[in-house]
Nucleic acid binder design. Structure first.
Lengths: 340, 340
DNA sequence: AACGTTTCGCGAAACGTTTCGGAAGTGGAA
DNA sequence: TTCCACTTCCGAAACGTTTCGCGAAACGTT
């Protein structure tokens, strides 16, 4: 139904090549006069170029692919995914690229997954989390297909990461400086790289400062407020509870705050809390959350830009690491006498 | 570099058509034996079908397009976009479709926009908000291109909406029932259809109950916490402030809560607040927000499903409207004596 | 007049598929 | 033997572009 370049050519009794050149100021020039005629007829026929046909031949779609974490049902709802995605989208807009989100991504079916990725619909891929997808990354590297991984071990593939170790260090040092010695940890799923790294940094800090690590002060959650609340109940509802808890992200810290309220534990006087992310709600909740800020929007934007650089074969920046910043608000204070 | 169907054919000295049939159990049968051989060689050559070439001929990409609100820089960050997108993504996954987010969408350049949309990269479109895009919708209708609009006037295009009128009615009736007579409104941008409809419903309620509408009790914001805070300061920081405020969404209500805290106005004893959405943080903030719940995930999922129905020419469901539910939490109470 | 150099334009190949028309062969029934 | 139906496979067209090679014409220089 829709008109094509051929229809224009026929109408004007000229060849399709000429039309193509006219339409996109193509690699060869066409005289002003016929150019105008082509443009007019194109408008008359309501012509729209078929970008798919074009991609087939140019091998570029101007679309960036995104692979959300596989448990995306939950994670896309979190501020992490949200802000990173926002960063990617904003940057993609500037770079005139669209963004395709791959919904199906079965890590057990590497072949099927690759079919999707390499089908030509996207020029490159951003992995929001590489958790469980190492074989896929491996094959992409092997095929030389442009990709960038976030929240991943710095390895063979290009990565954009946040300095978790440094961020956790700041958070812990803050708590330690206030006088806390009994510090618990709401840990993210340990297969998730950030979750793992933050836990490592936490353990490392505790060890280095000779603090006791009580296993029952460390509970896992999948980065959601609900999980945070459940996990927090396990940590807090016991006689020897810690005086402070470091949560692997803000969402879980929010759940923790709720749990504390339910248990009648007042924050920060009886319990200090530090989160990670500085999501918008950290400043909006009550009491306002002390947290480690990571520039999620910038991370997303950087990933998008790095990916396009790779696609267009510019400088080979292979990895980028962003810094963090401690934002001290109202959920941290000195532990009270009777606790320490 | 990558191997094609032709390579397989050459290797086996058979025709490409046979390979094609073998590969996708195609419309014609091929004997078991050659089928196996084709599959083996395909694996050997690490063959990946080129989906772009396939879409060119089948005219299907199995990708659903999404057009975020044009001021997406802000809106994608809100729970509205987030949950709707989540709903779409989940449903798309079930339906084996991927999702492409159009970043560029200049409402001034209808032609350019249409080029993007009709380029063949997507089989249909979901408009998150049709605000300002009527000409585009018009043309899509004219071309019979599958699309669904959210948060839009029920018109010629298929829509999925929420019953704003009913939702606002519940919120207002709740406040009225508690004894509030001086009720303000934190309004969303009025070009946004939901924002407009909620404001209409608010005004209508006030009129019907003979309540005074004070223009300085109505301030606009772009659905963000920051805007909510700014707008709330204007409403609250004056001698004749209302005893209750209905906010067009939860994010602004959250900003309102913050503003109230800054001004030393205690919620709910001195000020009642109702939001709209029931975003996760409504239950997590303090005091917990009374709000109108709308099933954002379901709305997104329904839109995706409706779109696919249209694409695949199944039943012609033209529009769907979801109901709301009032969730009473801790930000609403009777007005105190001295206020009324 | 002979010569390069541009300009202009056409035809065709290519991108990687899907799918149609039909040819050749096989087997069974009339 | 003839006819029909079925299987198996090939060649080619099609989808809508981009772009290369090449020829013809036009133009100015020697």
């Amino acid at each position: 139904m829709a008109s094509t370049i051929k229809d224009i050519a026929r109408r004007l009794n000229i060849s399709v090549s000429t039309v193509s050149y006219a339409l996109n100021g193509g690699p060869r020039s066409v005289p002003e006069e016929v150019r105008d005629k082509v443009l007019t007829v194109a408008r008359e026929l309501d012509y729209r170029p078929n970008r798919v046909a074009r991609s087939l031949i140019t091998r570029r779609s101007h679309v960036l692919g995104i692979i959300p974490h596989r448990s995306s049902r939950d994670l896309i709802l979190g501020p992490f995914m949200q802000h990173v995605l926002n960063g990617i989208l904003n940057e993609a807009e500037l770079m005139m690229q669209h963004v395709l989100i791959f919904t199906r991504c079965d890590e057990k079916d590497t072949a099927g997954t690759m079919d999707q990725f390499l089908g030509g619909h996207v020029d490159g891929l951003v992995f929001i989390s590489s958790d469980g997808l190492e074989p896929v990354l491996e094959e992409l590297r092997h095929r030389n297909f442009p990709h960038v991984a976030l929240s991943a071990r710095r390895g063979a593939s290009p990565t954009v990461t946040v300095d978790n170790v440094n961020g956790v260090e700041r958070a812990m040092a803050h708590l330690y400086g206030l006088g806390h010695r009994k510090i618990g940890h709401l840990r993210g799923i340990p297969t998730h790289y950030d979750g793992w790294e933050r836990h490592e940094a936490y353990s490392d800090f505790m060890r280095r400062h000779g603090l006791p690590i009580n296993p029952s002060w460390i509970v896992d959650g999948r980065f959601t407020p609900f999980d945070g609340r459940c996990a927090a109940l396990k940590i807090l509802d016991r006689p020897d509870r810690p005086t402070a808890v470091f949560a692997a992200n803000d969402e879980m810290a929010l759940g923790l705050l709720e749990a504390a309220r339910e248990l009648g534990i007042s924050v920060p006087s009886q319990l200090s809390v530090v989160g990670f992310d500085d999501s918008p709600h950290a400043a909006l909740c009550y009491p306002r959350l002390t947290t480690v800020r990571q520039p999620l929007n910038d991370i997303g934007a950087a990933a998008a830009r790095m990916l396009l650089d790779i696609i267009e074969e510019r400088d080979p920046v292979t990895s980028l690491r962003f810094g963090t910043e401690l934002v001290i608000r109202d959920t941290t204070a000195r532990p009270t006498e009777d606790q320490s």
